[in-house]
Each structure stands twice: as structure tokens, then as C-alpha cells.
């Protein structure tokens, strides 16, 4: 009668190099694409589309972004406001900060990111609130749309 010796199988050492390789490549991919500067893009705001909405050639020297989501919710400096008075108070604080930094308020660009369904009057009210605090430069933000190429049959 033969007896088989119960041998413990040798611990299999997997080659980790391809996995680490792949993981580092994934990290590099996400690191390159992560965008902390555009954190001012609230996902609730669905911007209107335009073929002429192209990013500015030069970045604005000073900028403040006011967002208007549907149901008239104003988002500014990480806070949500339901009335223009609250926005004006927050803008006043920003104005004082700009003045303390010896920056001209009139040179600051107010970027307005308004939802496509929001009321134009509300956007104008926001502009008026900014104007009373001497903000004069405004930029209306839109989403870049594809240019429709004319088909040869047309």
C-alpha cells in the first residue's frame, strides 16, 4: 500500500508588477483630469448651449461666479441664497475683501451661470444687485455646442 505524503503546497507568489503598473497609470490618468479650479460648476445648473460659447482667451484677472439654478436658487461662494438681499450681503463682503487687497471692484468680472430654464428677469435682478455694488463687468456663461456640418445634399 502506497502512502502519499501530505506536502504543503508552496506559497504561490503572484507577479504584482503588471497590477501596480496599471494602477499607477490609472492614478496618473485621474490626476491629470481632475479639475479643482472648476469647482464652481454646480451640477444643478444646466447651462444653455451656444456654438459661440468658447472659453476666454485669457483668464479673468479677478472673477466671481454667481450661479442661478432652477427654482430661483442663487449659489454664490459655496452658499445658497433664496433672496437677492442675502446675495447682496455676500457680495458686499467680497467687495470689501477686494478693496482690502487693493483690487478695483470695477475690474472684477461677474460670471453668471444661469440655468437654461431660469427667468431672464431673475438674471437681470442679479446683474442689478451687482451694479449697485459697482461691479460693471459681466459674462454670461454657456455650454459649448457642436457646430452642425452642412451635408453635401443641402
Amino acid at each position: 500500500m502506497r502512502f502519499y505524503e501530505s506536502k504543503t503546497a508552496p506559497a504561490s507568489k503572484g507577479d504584482l508588477t503588471p497590477m501596480i503598473d496599471m494602477t499607477f497609470q490609472l492614478i496618473a490618468f485621474f490626476m491629470l483630469l481632475v479639475n479643482f479650479t472648476d469647482a464652481e460648476q454646480d451640477q444643478r445648473v444646466r447651462l444653455p448651449e451656444s456654438i459661440l460659447a468658447v472659453p476666454p482667451d485669457e483668464p479673468y484677472e479677478e472673477r466671481l461666479t454667481i450661479q442661478l439654478a432652477s427654482k430661483d436658487v442663487i449659489i454664490f461662494a459655496g452658499s445658497e441664497f433664496s433672496s437677492l438681499d442675502q446675495l447682496s450681503r455676500a457680495l458686499l463682503v467680497e467687495k470689501q475683501i477686494l478693496e482690502a487687497r487693493e483690487k478695483k471692484v470695477s475690474d472684477t468680472t461677474i460670471i453668471i451661470r444661469a440655468d437654461r430654464e431660469s427667468k431672464t428677469g431673475k438674471v437681470q435682478e442679479i446683474i442689478q444687485a451687482c451694479q449697485t455694488l459697482e461691479f460693471l463687468k459681466f459674462a454670461l456663461r454657456g455650454k459649448q455646442a457642436e457646430v452642425r456640418v452642412r451635408s453635401p445634399s443641402n
Binding site: Q41, S50, A53, P56, L136, A139, L140, R141, G142
Partner: peptide, 12 residues
């Protein structure tokens, strides 16, 4: 997503 701006003049 790529976004762009339209400058408008709103002097006081």
C-alpha cells in the same frame, strides 16, 4: 464640460 462666456456691457 467646456464652457464659454458672452461678455455684456452693463454700466451703471
Amino acid at each position: 464640460l467646456p464652457e464659454g462666456d458672452f461678455s455684456i456691457q452693463m454700466p451703471s
